[in-house]
Structure formats: structure tokens, C-alpha cells
Amino acid sequence: MPARRRRYRIKCELIGRDEVEEIKQLERPESLVHFLRGLWAENAVFRQMLGMCPVLAVTGQLQPALTMGAATTFVLLCSALVVSLMRNLLVGHLRILMFTLTIATFVTIADLLLQAYLPEMSVKLGPYVPLIIVNCLIIGRAEACSSRKGIFTSVADALGMGLGFTFGLCVLATIRELMADGALFGVAVMPAGFVNWNVMKLPAGAFITLGILLGLTNHFFKKA
């Protein structure tokens, strides 16, 4: 048995496994803790249920879901950076206005970039790119993290949350595209004779998939 593993086991026997894990968390750099939290423990889709509008609306196929995830991550990262930089200048009652202003700026930039470099995708996503402005995940992270923490922690938190959100969108999109079109990224993968489930393309399919996934998440990962 490697020495590291042996030390871990002795510590667990002495003070208990939960305490050892807690100490381990505390010993990690703050930015890494924030980054990892966003990926799963505080995943925006499965654990916090934030940003449900794009989760339900653009997960009919993998490609738009991935683009939406990337655009949201871009806005999260940029707004986290800017909000963190001006966190000491924020006045209590005007801070939400500043967050919205910052987020709206980067959403507009993301929308323009999509129109210029991915025009087909921009048409496909329609109004859901400008609607990133009202995604409560972004303003939530600005309020909970970027306006209180330094640049590195804020950016790591935004990256973790963004990747976690993209992961959530992609899981839903994979299931829905497979069921609705028998394809992934537009390439047919299901065997010949597979009957497409049209309902999976519609809002009902999005609600059913999300409901089942949330049920499974709660069943397997809910703390006792």
C-alpha cells in the first residue's frame, strides 16, 4: 500500500473519514474549491436548478446546446472578472444595476460574435442568446462570489459553473437528440428502423428528460 494511502487510512481511523475530508477541503486553494464545486456539487442544472430557460429551450440538439454553454461560460467569465475588479467600488443599492449592466454588455458582445462567426447557429438559437442576460446563474455568481472574492477565485468559480452548466445542457441534449432524431451532432447513430420520438423535440420532451434526470440525481446523490 502506498505511504500516502496508508496515512489517509490512519487519519480516518483516528478522527473519522468525514473530518479528514473536511480538512482536505480546507487545505485546498480557494480557487480550486470554487472551480470543483461548480462542476458537480453545486452544478447549476442538477443541483441548483438555475438557468432553466435555456436548459429546456435549446437542448433539442447537441450543437446548439454546446454553443449556448460556451456563450454562457464566456459571459460568466468576463462578468466575473469585471465585477471582481470593481468589487470594492460597488455601492449597496446600486450593485445589482452594475451586475446587470456588465452582464448585458458581454451578452451583446457574445451575440454579435455569434452573428458574425456562426451565423447559422445564431439563427438557430434565436432569442435565447440575448436572454442569457436574465440567466439567474450569472447574476447569482456575481452576487455570491465575484463581488466578494478576488480575481482568481472569481474566475475559477465562473469557469467551474460555466463548464458545469455546459455539461448539464449537453447531457439533456444528448438524450433528446438521440431519441428525437436518432443522431448525435446531426450524425445518425441509431440502428436502421429506429422510430424517432417526436415528443423529445418539443417542450414536453425537455420537461420529461429534465424531470427524470433530476429524480435520478436526487436518488443517487442526495445527502442522508
Binding site: M86, L90, L94, L101, T102, T105, T108, L112
Partner: peptide, 17 residues
């Protein structure tokens, strides 16, 4: 005094966009 940051940010962000 209260809103200088909002005004400045609106100007800078507007110019940027």
C-alpha cells in the same frame, strides 16, 4: 457620489459594444 461608477461603466461599456 453614489452613481459615478454606473455612469462611467455605462459610458465605457457602451463605447466598447
Amino acid at each position: 457620489k453614489d452613481s459615478w461608477l454606473v455612469l462611467l461603466a455605462a459610458l465605457v461599456f457602451g463605447l466598447g459594444v
